[in-house]
Each structure stands twice: as C-alpha cells, then as structure tokens.
Nucleic acid binder design. Sequence first.
DNA 1: CGCTTGCTTGGAGTGCACTCCAACTCTCTA
DNA 2: TAGAGAGTTGGAGTGCACTCCAAGCAAGCG
Lengths: 160, 160
Amino acid sequence: MGTAMTVIDDAPAEVRACGELERQRHRRPEGRDRFTISEVADYTGLSAHTLRWYERIGLMPLVDRSHTGQRRYGPRDLDWLDLVGKLRLTGMPVADMVRFAELVRQGEETVAERERLLSAHREDVRRRIAELRSTLDVLDYKIDIYADARRRASEGASRT
Amino acid sequence: MGTAMTVIDDAPAEVRACGELERQRHRRPEGRDRFTISEVADYTGLSAHTLRWYERIGLMPLVDRSHTGQRRYGPRDLDWLDLVGKLRLTGMPVADMVRFAELVRQGEETVAERERLLSAHREDVRRRIAELRSTLDVLDYKIDIYADARRRASEGASRT
DNA sequence: CGCTTGCTTGGAGTGCACTCCAACTCTCTA
DNA sequence: TAGAGAGTTGGAGTGCACTCCAAGCAAGCG
C-alpha cells in the first residue's frame, strides 16, 4: 500500500547543490540506492535518533525496511530530507513541516495548498533576511565604536 | 555603587530606527525618562515577565526603583534593550548576551573582547543570510513546480 | 472604605526540538 | 562461531527561552 511518498518532485542537482558549503558532510553515494540510518545521518547531518523521531511524528514517510526490519533509505527519502533540511534551516517549525508532509501524502489535490504554504514561508524568509540585514548595520556601527575606542586606548598608551 | 551601565554607547536615532517596520509597538515617549515595566514591555514587545527575567539572569543591569520598590526604567535601559532586541532577533543565545552584558559591566578594558564577540556574531549573521538566500532559490523552484502543476490541472479540467 | 489595577517575589510549568536510555536483535569480520 | 559494532523500540530526559502562578503590597477612584 501507498506509504511511499509519491509526489516528491525532485529538484535537479544544480538547484539541490547550490549554497550549503559543507553542511552536508558527505556527498550522496552514487550507484547505490539503499542506505542505512547511519549513512543517512552522515549525509544529512541529523542524528540517527532524529531520523527515527522524524519518522515517528510523520515528518518522514515510513521508510522501507530490510528483511530483518532495519531501515533502508532510498534516493527519494534523501531528496525529501534535503527539502526538510532546507525548511528547517530557515526556521520552519517542525509542526508546519509535518503539515506539509501530510499534504504531500494526500496527493495531487493538495498542490494549491502546498504552494500557499511554501509561498507564505518564502515571505517569512524574505522578511527575516531584511531583518538580519538591518541588524548588520547596527552591528557594524557598534563594532566601529569599539574599534575606535581600542585605537584611541592604544595610542594613549603609546604616548605615555 | 556602580550598577548603572556606564558604557552603553548609544546609537543615534538613524541607526536605531532603520529596519523593524512595526516590531516596536510604541514609539519611545519623549519628555519623560522613567518608565514602568509595562510601558517598557509595550515599547520593546517583550513581556513584563521576560523583562524581570532578563534582570535576574544578568542580561539587564539592575534597574532603578521607585520609593515603593517598583522598577523605573531609564533611557539607557531602553537603549540597552534595543541592542539586546537586535542581538536576540539575530538568534544570539541568551547566554552569549549575558556574557556580553558582563563585559559591558566590567568597563573599558573589555572593549577588545566585546569587539571580538560582536564581530564573530556579525560573521554568523552574514553566514545565515547567505544560507537563507540559497534556500530561497529552492523555495522558488518548488513553488514554480506547484504553480505549473496547478495550471496544468485547471487547464485539463476546463478542457473536459 | 472597598475595589480595581498594577507591581512585587521565588519557584514551578510549558513548548519545542531534540537526545538519550535500557534492553534488546542483527550483521559483519576473524 | 564468537565478539564487536551496528540497528531496533517506547519512553524518559535535556536545554533553551520563556511563561505563568500564588500570595502579597501599593496607588488611585467613587
């Protein structure tokens, strides 16, 4: 039955790879398509604990199992975790990500709502970027003050 | 005794005001210079609980009191809270802000370290801005996909 | 004078996102 | 075939940043 996530529109490598200089400790192994939990932990930077927890709370589709019951993650699972990682990085609450995962599970008829959800989040991210930038100005201002103070202090000292 | 913060180099209004479209619910009242906790809560957007808590943990200098023991915040307290608000907005952990507050309390000889602390944080903020921007690309990509899917779906429906 | 509203305190409680534990079973290498 | 090192589970624990509570004091108003 259809627990496999059917509607992960997989982003092409160019999009997937941009940014993130070393957040992903290890490149995704080519050639294989079933990965153990520790390989995935390594790849995503999440702990194995967290991966299991994501599954429990419905943030991951139920992961495929080996004949003995151990998890075997596939390429679509990694794609999904890439996206989740991005959303997490931008501070989307886990509850919202779970909501998104539910929509994906429900299939094509939720596309409009998914779009709305991501668009709202995009606005959020834009707002936060602007906020951060404005703080950067304050930080620059403060740091200048301190640099001046330090310069004056060392000049005073050398003149003594 | 010198619990009053002596080294808040106050940023001029241009720097203080930029960004933050409506984060500060109320303009700082002009003319007066002693504010109750609820006025300050209103001004900063923090709760009175949080303001007291900041003081307890050493993130605020001990605030002046009225003859009956109630807090009376002064302009420098508001300046300090403006800065703390900025740092908080950029995700600086409370523990780091407390460390910074301690340095400020210790006086001029900690200027170099304060500069280092803020510079490090500035790099952090820069990194996070870059990160957010790269996520924005992924978001745009996804949203496009959904928009396309939606368009195709409604076209198909109208052709039926 | 009584009532409402606002302030005080220490300490307990909340919500989020993990993070770890105990007590196993399974896989791999020698 | 033995032992090390992975993986499994439900549930409890952690750290952070608040957030609230109870009990009490103080000021202003009709």
